[in-house]
Amino acid sequence: MTNSVNPRARASEKRRRLTRAAARVLHEQGVERTTLADIAREAEVPVGNVYYYFKTKDELVSAALAEHSAHLDEITARLEQSDDPRDRLKALVEGWIGARDVAARYGCPTGTLAVELDKRADGTLDAEAGAVIRRLLDWAGQQFRALGLAHPDDLALTLVSGYQGMSLLANALRDPDVMTREGTRLLRWLDSLESADPQS
């Protein structure tokens, strides 16, 4: 009997390691400054292995965006464990505040990528980045809708715009306190929203 790991499972794990590494390095360094060697080093795999799974850097960027999308799904799945949509939204904001040091250093993982990719003349990667942000907007809109609030999609836009703005400013000013102050303001705003009377 052998203890060897299934080669397909091993290959899948290595690809996932590379994808996670790409998401981290691209967030920290940006697309233009990142090389495949940087990602291989972060994933602790030989650089030649990167080409086995990803033929171009754009393929890795696309995989990193898929990783961001999967991470968002994990976050929202955890938030869905709460029965109260307002509590879900507040927990989301509290998570943003908790990541203030990372935001101050590198900005929002998806937002910064979307802005950088939009500057490129080629490809559709900017649309892929936008799709991840759209997923967050849709989820937030569902929460406001569940609260019976008018214009739930507009409220979602206000919330996510607030996050993108505070991430941008925290990063530009290298000041994590921006996230704390603006995040606290968003929490107060969420508490101030009046849900519709279910009897009306």
Results as ranks from 00 to 15, higher is better:
Leu157His: 11
Gly183Lys: 06
Trp189Val: 07
Thr158Ala: 08
Leu190Cys: 11
Ser161Leu: 06
Val178Ala: 03
Gly148Ala: 09
Ser167Asn: 13
Ser161Ala: 12
Leu157Val: 11
Leu190Pro: 12
Met179Gln: 09
Leu173Ile: 00
Gly162Leu: 07
Gln164Lys: 08
Thr184Gly: 13
Arg145Asn: 12
Arg181Met: 15
Pro152Trp: 08
Arg145Lys: 13
Leu157Asn: 09
Val160Asp: 02
Asp154Trp: 01
Asp175Gln: 04
Asp154Cys: 02
Leu155Asn: 09
Leu168Met: 07
Leu159Gln: 05
Leu147Arg: 14
Leu159Pro: 04
Ser161Thr: 15
Leu190Ser: 15
Thr184Asn: 11
Leu155His: 10
Leu155Asp: 11
Trp189Cys: 03
Gly165Leu: 00
Leu168Ser: 04
Asp191Gly: 15
Arg174Tyr: 00
Arg174Phe: 01
Ala170Trp: 01
Leu149Asp: 12
Gly148Tyr: 12
Ala156Cys: 07
Trp189Gly: 06
Pro176Gln: 05
His151Met: 07
Val178Tyr: 04
Arg174Ile: 03
Asp191Val: 11
Glu182Phe: 05
Gly183Val: 13
Asn171Gly: 02
Gln164Ala: 14
Val178Arg: 02
Arg185Cys: 10
Arg181Cys: 09
Leu187Phe: 11
Leu187Ile: 14
Leu173Gly: 00
Arg185Asp: 14
Arg145Ile: 02
Leu169Glu: 07
Tyr163Trp: 14
Asn171Trp: 02
Leu147Pro: 07
Leu149Pro: 11
Asp153Trp: 02
Pro152Ala: 14
Gly148Asn: 06
Arg181Ile: 14
Ala172Trp: 00
Asp177Ser: 06
Arg145Met: 08
Thr158Gly: 03
